[in-house]
Simulated scan of single mutants.
Amino acid sequence: MRKILVRLMAVALVLAAPSAAASEPVKIIDVMVHPYYDAGILSGGRRMVQVGRDFDALLQSDRREDVAAARDKVLAHPELITPMTMMVLAIRLYDVGLRDDSVFWFYVAKDRWSTLSDTIDVSGPAFGGAEEAVKNFAYLAGPSINGYAFCDVGKQQAARVRAVDWVEQHPYQVIFSDRLPALRGDRRANLARSIAGLRKEVAEERAYLSDPKKVAALRAARQQNGADARYCW
């Protein structure tokens, strides 16, 4: 699953622009990931959020202060917040203009899921379609969130480091539940290896983006495909 998410992020760096209306700013992320979220724009319906009763109303709101309040609730008690909740939070933060926060929580959601899937057998019925949902969130929302993130490569890299730090400092407590089947090996050791793997990915990305020629190529591609016009406003 981690490799899928990393590939999705890599594609988003360059392929963030759509085939039409390439100069129109993307101010709302219009996606649907059943059963957790539906922006309701293309469907002509009302926005739908189903991630938990403590968050649904706040994340359905178009008020910036409500979405920020949902973020603050996650910060206050992060132990059992699902990656799907964090993905919806990232989308809604983007929608209300808190896009730096959006980038951070998108990366946190991805990294929290990676630590879970590296320690727990997520293929069982206890997780339903959670793995597919996280993949779909990354695939559908990732281009817009990364499209904004890479307006400033330095800031994007800082967000990646902060996200891994946060995930390490606030481990997902579901990982330690005896009711869920663990993968082979000690859970805490597997969690530590997962975090180390995330840090390796961040280091590899940083090494790639430390090459001025590669950064120049990235910027040229974004100019060509319209990503800057759509996301750097």
Score class of each variant (00 low, 15 high):
V164G: 02
D228E: 15
W166A: 10
A207R: 13
N146S: 14
G142A: 08
N136Y: 03
V174C: 02
R179N: 11
G128I: 05
V215K: 07
V134Y: 02
A217H: 04
K155F: 03
A207W: 07
A196P: 00
G124K: 15
G154T: 04
V153Q: 07
R193C: 04
A216F: 03
D186E: 14
A141N: 06
K135M: 08
R219S: 07
G129V: 06
Y208C: 00
Q173R: 11
E204K: 06
L140A: 08
V167F: 06
G128W: 10
H170Q: 13
R193I: 03
A130P: 02
P143Q: 09
Q173T: 11
I175L: 14
R199D: 05
G128P: 10
E204D: 15
E205N: 08
N146P: 00
R219A: 07
A149K: 08
R188M: 11
F150M: 03
V122G: 09
Y172W: 13
A126N: 15
F150Y: 15
A189Y: 08
G147P: 05
A227D: 12
A133D: 05
S210P: 00
C151E: 07
G185T: 00
R160G: 01
S177Y: 14
N190F: 10
Q156M: 13
L198V: 02
R162G: 06
P212S: 06
K155I: 00
P143C: 09
R199H: 08
A207K: 14
D178P: 09
L140K: 14
Y172I: 02
K213Y: 04
L198S: 07
D228I: 00
G142V: 00
L218W: 05
A159N: 07
N146E: 14
